[in-house]
């Protein structure tokens, strides 16, 4: 098992996984979110190029009310 953090919560993966597959697996579909990996923005066009190998911290953010 490898460990990673998604939106501040610790989680586990059975094996390394591509970011696009991981996001789909966690229910993130469509275009209503944006991703940062270890504090750096990951453009949507690069999801398939990134592999999660453990130890990463992911932020997946969606539109929200704001002032």
């Amino acid at each position: 098992m490898i460990e990673l953090t998604l939106n501040g919560e610790a989680g586990q993966l059975a094996k390394p996984m591509r970011l696009d597959e991981f996001l789909a697996d966690r229910g993130f579909h469509g275009r209503g979110f944006a991703v940062a990996l270890d504090g750096d923005f990951v453009p949507r066009s690069r999801y398939a190029d990134v592999t999660l190998r453990g130890g990463e911290s992911l932020e997946v953010l969606s539109p929200m009310q704001g002032g």
Partner: peptide, 22 residues
């Protein structure tokens, strides 16, 4: 209009409802 970004659970709609509204 000003809006923001936040962590949201995709099971709850993940902000899409709000964004569609806006």
């Amino acid at each position: 209009l000003t809006v923001s970004l936040r962590r949201q659970n995709p099971a709850d709609g993940g902000g899409e409802q709000f964004w569609d509204y806006i």
